[in-house]
Amino acid sequence: MRGFLTLFSDRQLAILRAVLPLLVIFALIALFYSINPRFLSTPNLLNLLRQSAVLLIVASGLTFVILIGSIDLSIGAIVTFSAIVTALMLSTVQAPAFVAIVVGILAAVGVGLVNGFLIVKGRIPSFVATLGTMTVLGGATVWLTGGRNVLFRDETLRWLASGSTIGIIPNVALWAILIFLVLAFVGARTHFGRLILATGAAPTTTMLSGYNVVRIKIFAFVLSAFAAGIGGVMMVARTSAGTIRMGDDLLLDGIAAVVIGGTALSGGSGGVHKTIVGVAIIAIVKNGLNVAQVHPYNQTLLTGVIVIGAVAVTLDRTRLAFVK
C-alpha cells in the first residue's frame, strides 16, 4: 500500500483521500445493484433512509467524544433509555407528546453529564466509566419497564418519524439530515468544534492557550448523549413501542461509522462531517446484503470484513504517530 501511495504527489494524495470514500460508496451501490436491481428501487431506498437515520444522529454526536480521544460506550444504552422514558411518559404518565420528548432527551443529557463528570472530575477512563453507565442504564430500563415492551399510540410521534413533509421522504430522515448538518457545522466552524479538535490533538497546548479543557470534555459527552437521546426519541417514534434492547446495535455501528468516516480513535483527527460517509457505508452494506439475500450469519461476517476494509481506506494514518 505504501509503495502504491508513493506514486502520487501530496496534493494528489489529498484529493485521493477525499474521493476514495465516495468511490467505496459507489462501488458498493454498483455491486449490490448488479446482484439485485431491486436495491435501487424506491421502496428499498426509502427503507435505507429509515434504517440509517437514527445511526446518523447517534454517530454524529459520538464523533465529538471520539475526537477528544475518549470513547462513549453508553450511547446504545442511552438510546434505549431515552426511548423507554419517552414511551413511559406517553403511556403511563399520559403526558403530551412535546413533554414526553423533552423529558426523554433531558434524561439522556443527564446521563451525558454524569459520564462527563465521572471521566473528567473522577478521572475514570472513559472506556470504564461509560461501560459502567451503560450497564447501569441497562438495569434501569429493565427496572422501569419490568422487562415488558412499552406500547403507546401518539399521532405527533408517528408523524415525527414516519410522516413526510417533502415528497415521500420520511420525516425521520429529514430530522437526521438536519441534526447532522447542525452538528457538522458545530464541529467544523464554531469555537467549540475547533477546541474539541485541539483538545484531542494537544490537550496541554489547548489548556495553555487559556481554555478550560475539563469543560470542553464534559461538553463533548453531553453532546454525544444529547444526540443519542434524540436518536432514542426518533427510534421509539418510528416503532411506537419501547423495548429494552432497542438501542443495542447502535453502539458498535456508531463507533464503526465514526471510524470508517475517518475520525481516529486516538482523537484530534477527523470531523463530524466525515461521519456521514461511515453511516452510508454501514447502512448500504447492511441493507444490500439483505437485498442480495445473503444468509444472516454470513451477513455479520461480511459486515466485519467490510468495516475493516473501509477503515483501511478512509483513515488518514499520516497523522497518527502510531497505530494502537
Binding site: 479538535l197 490533538a201 494537544a202 496541554t204 497546548t205 489547548t206 495553555l208 484530534g268 483527527s269 497523522r319
Partner: peptide
C-alpha cells in the same frame, strides 16, 4: 511540540 503548538493544525 506538546505545549506550544497543535502539530496537525
Amino acid at each position: 511540540k506538546s505545549e506550544g503548538i497543535v502539530g496537525y493544525m
